[in-house]
Design a protein around this nucleic acid. Sequence first.
RNA 1: CGGGACGUGGCUCAGUCUGGUAGAGCACAGCGUUCGGGACGCUGGGGUCGGAGGUUCGAAUCCUCUCGUCCCGACCA
Length: 568
Amino acid sequence: MRYSRFFLPTVKEIPADAEVISHQLMLRAGMIRRLASGLYTHLPLGLRSLRKVESIIREEMDAAGALELLMPMVQPAELWQESGRWEKYGRELLRFTDRHDRPFCLGPTHEEVITDLVRREVRSYRDLPLVFYQIQTKFRDEIRPRFGLMRAREFLMKDAYSFDVDDEGLDRTYRAMYDAYCRIFERCGLDYRPVEADTGTIGGHASHEFMVLAETGEDSIACCTACSYASNVELAQVVSSPPPLVSPESREEARKVSTPGKRSIEEVSGFLGIPPDRIVKTLVFATDKGPVAALVRGDHEINEIKLGRFLGVEEIRLASDEEVRLAAKVSPGFVGPVGLSGVRIVADPAVLSMDGFTAGAGEEDYHIVGLVWGRDLPVPETADIRNITVHDPCPRCGGRIEIRRGIEVGHVFKLGTAYSEALGARFLDENGTEKPIIMGCYGIGVGRTLAAAIEQNHDANGIVFPRPIAPFDVIVCPLKTEDPAYIHAADDLLHALTRAGFQVLLDDRDLRPGVKFKDADLIGVPVRVTLGKLLADGIVEIRERRSGEVVMCPMVEVLERVSSLLVR
RNA sequence: CGGGACGUGGCUCAGUCUGGUAGAGCACAGCGUUCGGGACGCUGGGGUCGGAGGUUCGAAUCCUCUCGUCCCGACCA
């Protein structure tokens, strides 16, 4: 490809609207352009990389026995009504009607469509197992699209769905997909971790998220430093807290203290000179089973998902100020476990080992210090309802936990029979018994994977693409374009390298060397071949983008040198 | 949806407080000099100042409404 015949609008300045580095670089390198919030055009350069990620995914899915198909993006409402998600999915589902006023939506995912297909076509256990996948545009009307391709509204996704006769079959398929995902992300040059994930409201049996480790990630992951345990913080179990303290020697009387206007743990801690881990944080939640007060230590974070699951409620959210006043008869900030009647109280185990603690008094502008469980107030029921911290042990091996940020690029999920039962996708087993098909689903954000790869592979000058997803393998830069000798030599290189199977960009623009170098670095092509002053002696320069290492090389050896750089 | 900020040539922004002829740098076109890490000089083209309404002799600037964008939060199989 000749640069002059290509379309590559690079930008020197950092776009003002781009927050994260991958977004900035994709804009600067001329890979993407924004059309509207969360909507991006993939320019030729970006598309080349995107297609490479796609190809890697396709190869590994095919190798794992999955079959590619392509489903419509527009889906009829009735399918979603059948699965119950027309009501449940919320406003992320973009709904509209056609000219006949029939309701449709843009597909954010395809469980309904694929299950509909399978229920029509599959009758017998002989037809199973099956894994279908597609690489297709999805639309989710995100509340807040951000970070370019990282969280777009319209985005390219590989989604796969598996159909098995029993749980053992699902386990095998799940494992095969899991392994394929590992190969895919390795080939994309990513530093990633498969982590245990929340199974969400679908209530499946198992789920893993594939997280690319990056500071800009939107998720927190708890990783063990000793074993291979890694889990989404949302899910990570907090196994042990120190046992409840029994009868310490000196116990002061609990007493009420004035704390005017001090609502947050931080304010109360600072005002009373009591560390946060001696204060109990009381948060009121509104649920479909009424208000619930949750107690955690002041330095801990409550985990709504865990709380909701423990309570067995469908809906849970932090209560509004109004709801708090109604339930606790005091405004938020002064709610405490004392004298809280008619409200279910759930405490984190760590709270029970606190002795002589401070909490809201249940009275405007007052807290109580020196509280003792069993003496001043009854011992509440306990459950693991908080987020894991670096001070907690690994739930698997007891090792030290660290919290890291991650970008979720893939998700594998054992669905079970939720959709096959709702939509009636059944088969007859070898005994002639009718059973629901056991399903799994498996997603990869293609654009997000590309963005994550850039997030992990860049330097001050731009992108440093791993070869498998680089838009070109080699960029050839003749520094004098008015000199026929340079042009001919560059052309020869272009053809020789192309014939050898490399994808080559020839920078034939009549520009100063500095400009060409900057652009070459920015777009991240792994190898640059420069034709400069020594060309007359048959010598060119070969430079590796990642290391910056430069070797001078006779023309005849270029192919060999370039190959060795790209293959390793 | 709550809080905050911002919309001025293609891009990054100044000008807005204190109303008075729309600016700079980059980019773009032409000419010349340059030519191994985003060169320099001269010349030139390009903007209904997001939109609508209002105040005023006069609005990018003040007021009201509206649309859009970004950030924080809430939300998120």
